[in-house]
């Protein structure tokens, strides 16, 4: 059962550490790439790379310290 505990701990750590943003991004990007590869093979590689980089960029920008608001 130790492998089950370790797996559960890993999934928890992954999600708790904003890993869900990467997962959500990939869930959107990968089917898009599949459709793109059906239409034009040349573009599907670019769609995959652009989608992954956009996912990571959004996830990174969300980690910036928040700007102080006037009310705060």
């Amino acid at each position: 059962m130790s492998w089950l505990t370790s797996s559960a701990a890993f999934v928890y750590d992954f999600l708790a550490d904003d890993g869900w943003e990467v997962l959500v991004g990939l869930v959107i990007v990968l089917p898009l790439v599949h459709f793109a590869s059906e239409i034009a093979d040349v573009w599907s590689g670019l769609v995959l790379i652009a989608g992954i980089l956009l996912t990571v960029a959004v996830s990174l920008l969300r980690q910036l310290p928040r700007r102080p608001t006037r009310d705060a």
Partner: peptide
């Protein structure tokens, strides 16, 4: 890992990378 993952996932999704493994 991101590079190899992108390459393999792309191949699995039907992408034919230009220059194959050299991509």
């Amino acid at each position: 890992l991101s590079t190899f993952g992108t390459f393999w996932a792309g191949e699995g999704l039907g992408i034919e990378w230009p220059a194959a493994d050299l991509s």
